[in-house]
Design a protein around this nucleic acid. Structure first.
Lengths: 197, 197
DNA sequence: GTCTATACACAGATAGAC
DNA sequence: GTCTATCTGTGTATAGAC
């Protein structure tokens, strides 16, 4: 991974956007932190919106890999779910933590549904949900699609509450719910009664 | 509820902030929509941040009342939960819907933890969670505190996903999880095995 | 590809008259 | 309490030299 000018700009922008939000950060500050001038920044990116989208694109893979590591690949699924939420809690228990950058971008740009960064955020969440469904399917769970949705809802919901209250206890509550959901799904067999109404 | 100048300003600000976000909206636009000048706005509010906090304060009660109505007060609890999430889905299925204003404010101001609006958002969520716990306790559920947390996590998580994907189907998935959780809690009696690890 | 310098709009907030 | 007029900083983006 070579240290190109472009990558330095993206890295600086990522850090500032995550710390202070999208609209709070000006391109002047980004250029300064990257050690370039504004003109150079606008040589590599056609607009600030373009740069924002590039930042999210750069975090897509790494974020997914991080959660893969947290979930692990061995042991009973309910335990793995609790472990994932526990790792999330530990991760969130740092002063510089500010929630999920994708969700935050989508929220801050909620007034501009056509924004490229919103599309990037949606694509990331879609990939995340697909990964969860794949894992559940591998465990022989029938309603993997629905359950994957419920899990990502619990994840994003817990992250939101942790951000609002600055209390990581919400992750544990969500982890328990997640463990209960996958346990019920696995125990119920092909069509768990809990999820059919 | 008399139509004071102050209330007109708050109403205009609410609408604009909800539609476009906090930082995207300038005080000029708010004053114009309220039919007053900027100077009058600054007579009633000492700063834009102050006005933001006032907007959230004005939505606290009405928001809670809306959810009270959606949950209802009769019938089996799992059905009421599904009904609440179904009502949320119907509410979210409108072009002008932009998610939860409290969560959005907390997210957009994540870089300023001391902001009065962030405190307001946290207070609202705390009240919401307390209301849920009260309802669950009234139904004789033992772990009402934990379960209320899991429910508000499901609500905010579903809202976030609906906002990102513009797909109200997430509310139904969350509603099923909520129904399963309260059903398991009620069936399990004083200490449901699902929630003790 | 990177620089200096700048255009131009708009931000939040205030002075002082009435 | 509400107005007109304005101050000052900052926003994104660009012109043109090297």
């Amino acid at each position: 991974m070579e240290e190109t000018t472009r990558s330095r700009i993206v890295a600086a922008a990522e850090a500032l956007f995550y710390a202070h939000g999208l609209r709070s950060v000006g391109v002047d500050a980004i250029a300064e932190h990257a050690g370039v001038t504004k003109r150079t920044l606008y040589y590599h990116f056609k607009s600030k919106d373009d740069l924002i989208a590039a930042c999210l694109a750069a975090r897509d893979g790494p974020t997914l890999e991080r959660y893969r590591g947290w979930l692990g690949d061995s042991g009973p699924l309910p335990d793995r779910m609790r472990a994932m939420f526990a790792a999330l809690a530990a991760h969130a228990d740092r002063p510089k933590w500010r929630g999920c950058g994708f969700t935050r971008a989508a929220v801050e740009l909620a007034g501009q549904p056509g924004h490229p960064a919103v599309a990037m955020a949606a694509a990331h969440k879609r990939r995340f949900e697909a990964w969860l469904a794949e894992v559940l399917l591998g465990e022989g769970i029938a309603d993997a699609g629905l359950m994957a949705r419920q899990l990502i809802i619990l994840l994003d919901g817990a992250i939101a509450q942790m951000l609002i209250h600055r209390d990581v206890a919400y992750a544990a509550a969500a982890g328990r719910a997640a463990a209960a959901i996958v346990a019920a799904g696995a125990a119920g067999g092909t069509a768990p009664s809990m999820y059919t109404d």
